[in-house]
Write a protein that binds this DNA or RNA. Structure first.
Lengths: 185, 185
DNA sequence: GTTCTTCATGTGACGTTGTCATATGAAGTA
DNA sequence: TACTTCATATGACAACGTCACATGAAGAAC
């Protein structure tokens, strides 16, 4: 009888790795079990089904992102505007470096997975604080924050689907991000 | 021996319906065949595999969207700015009314599906023409078009994943679209 | 030390999926 | 009539998510 928490961690890590490496289709329960070094049935002791396992992976990714934002907020050196640009770049980089993980994070977080919902809500609040620091008016921070968040998400999605090519649009995602921030501030 | 083209159409329509009704998981080859009134193996005479069948569905959706844009471009009554807003609204509406179809349209159109690529390229060009008509400078139309396209795509994606709630951000997707256009023109 | 309970883990089985090899059978041609 | 062609039908296969059940180790009770 292995430590319950330890097995949970191993399974979670294996699922996260397989997702990052080979996309959602590579995350079969059998592959996860094999990589985690446990049997096929072991994950069922810790996650009701595959969906909940993936939701846990997504939630953990949101928590990691939230921790990065916390570091960014705690750093006094950059100006508010610089902080905003860095915050958005962090999201962009996740989308580029781990496209499948990123896609999972933004795929409908069901009401059945409160952990994922809470993690998303936390990052939203952090992001809103950063935006409010730039805007000044906290009332207007929310709509503008939504615009920034949506736009950056769209940039990542179009990059990853291969539809944001330089030949077609003559811009890079980073340039779009800069255009966006210029039109806000 | 049924007419080859007719079977192809029936299968394609069945797949499109199942996608719109029940999402990607509902589009099983067996369900498609049953709805189309053909046997399980029939689709393989017209599409190499499931991926190509779905790519054909996506391509057709892009063509439909392109036709709508053509109508919009041909209509002389609205101002260029109004046309732009309507064009973006068309995209938004597709995302709302047929979220699964929309998601498929924006999921990586592989190089192996030239039909889908061509259909996407056509709508991109149409959209760029509409943007250039507003901006004036055709040189700047491309980056700005990319920004608009990406942002609207992000709005739709966040709406459909349930992350763009009014309670959290105190805006609707439509209001974001208006904010966006105001900051461009 | 022995017995009992508990609980995570291991395993065989089931239905469903995408896919293929092969069989069927209708249309057109000689 | 006999033959070719080609779309359609069907049985089979491996792999999938999932479940019911078996196994076996750790701690408690005697």
């Amino acid at each position: 009888m292995e430590s319950a928490a330890a097995t949970r961690r191993t399974v979670l890590d294996a699922a996260a790795e397989l997702l990052a490496e080979g996309g959602p289709d590579a995350v079969t329960l059998r592959a996860v079990s094999a990589r985690a070094g446990v049997s096929r049935g072991a994950p069922y002791g810790h996650f009701p089904d595959k969906e909940h396992l993936l939701a846990a992976v997504a939630a953990e990714s949101w928590v990691t992102l939230g921790d990065q934002l916390d570091d960014l907020i705690a750093d006094e050196r950059p100006s508010p505007a610089e902080r905003l640009e860095r915050a958005l770049s962090v999201l962009l980089e996740v989308g580029r470096r781990r496209p499948h993980t990123y896609a999972l994070m933004f795929s409908a977080p069901n009401d059945e997975h409160p952990g994922a919902l809470a993690a998303v809500s936390r990052t939203n609040d952090q992001f809103l604080a950063i935006v409010a620091d730039v805007i000044g008016d906290p009332q207007r921070a929310r709509p503008i924050g939504a615009l920034l968040m949506s736009s950056v998400h769209g940039i990542v999605a179009m990059e990853n689907s291969g539809q944001l090519t330089v030949e077609k649009w003559q811009v890079t995602g980073d340039e779009l991000l800069k255009m966006l921030i210029d039109r806000i501030a």
